[in-house]
Simulated assay, not measured.
Amino acid sequence: MDIIRVLLADDQALVRAGFATMLSVEDDIEVVGQVTNGREAAAFAAEHDVDVILMDVQMPVMDGIKATELITRAGRGKVIILTTFEREDYLFDAIRSGASGFLLKNAEPEDLIAAVQAVAGGYALLAPEVTVRVIERFARQLDAEGRDAPTSQPSGELQKLLESLTQREKEVLASMATGLSNAELAQKLFLAEATVKSHVSSLLAKIQVRDRVQAVVFAYESGLIRPGE
């Protein structure tokens, strides 16, 4: 059994202790470190083998958004952003910085555990319907502001990456961006679920993104689909 190595980044000791206690009951999860700010999180991830970082947003020295950007750009782990505030601007900033998920601190223990396991497995933390709603709004905001999306790829490079996909992979990506699960994709495209999983893994590698959240952003950014479609 593969062990998921988790780093906790929060400036409140009681919060870190609580998360560590909740996660320690799982045989496949190990808390390998606890830090108090974003700078320490980035440094720890650079020096240790970490799979998932549970990252608070508001911390001293360096906030969680900046730390997430440093960690994900270096490919040093997948980040779940934690916050006590259900604010969409945090979610937008988290996605922009390369986070793989977003979770409120008052989430139930089973939701926290499921989030860690899902992100470690390469899945989006957000429920499909929430992912679509958030990413669509995010895409509109990026379009209105003229900012780059999380892939940070020039438009020409995006088109090259998009063209590297087979027609079937484009169909899978477009359907995935509308919130369909693997099982639903299989039913819609008349494929075996194992075949869908293979297509998803292949297209993630080709478009150079870490997980389904970033793949959905890519689908909008590249023009494969448009907000509201």
Rank of each mutant, 00 (worst) to 15 (best):
E171T: 04
A149H: 10
T151W: 11
L165M: 10
R168M: 14
L173V: 00
T151V: 07
L185Q: 06
K160T: 12
V200K: 11
A177F: 05
E171D: 12
S201D: 14
L180H: 14
Q208P: 01
L189H: 10
Q214T: 01
E184N: 09
T195N: 11
E169Q: 15
T178L: 07
Q167W: 12
P150K: 07
S201Q: 13
T178C: 02
Q214H: 15
S202G: 12
E163P: 04
L162M: 10
S181W: 07
A192P: 02
K197W: 04
S164I: 01
K206W: 05
Q187Y: 10
A174P: 05
T178E: 13
K188S: 04
R168I: 10
A186P: 08
Q153K: 15
L162N: 02
S202Q: 08
S181V: 00
T195S: 14
A205W: 01
A186E: 03
A177Y: 13
A186L: 03
Q187E: 13
E169S: 06
A149C: 09
K188Q: 12
E193K: 15
E184F: 06
D211Y: 07
Q187S: 07
M176V: 00
Q187L: 13
S152V: 07
S175R: 08
L161S: 02
S181Y: 09
L189P: 05
L161F: 09
P154G: 02
E171Y: 06
S175M: 06
L158K: 11
G156S: 10
R168E: 11
V200P: 04
F190H: 12
A194Q: 13
A192C: 04
V213W: 06
S175T: 07
E163S: 08
L180G: 01
S152A: 15
R168W: 06
A205H: 06
V213C: 02
K188E: 13
Q187G: 02
P150R: 11
A205D: 13
L173T: 00
Q214G: 00
M176Y: 14
L185S: 01
Q159F: 14
R212D: 07
Q153W: 12
R210L: 04
V200G: 04
S155R: 15
S181D: 03
K160E: 14
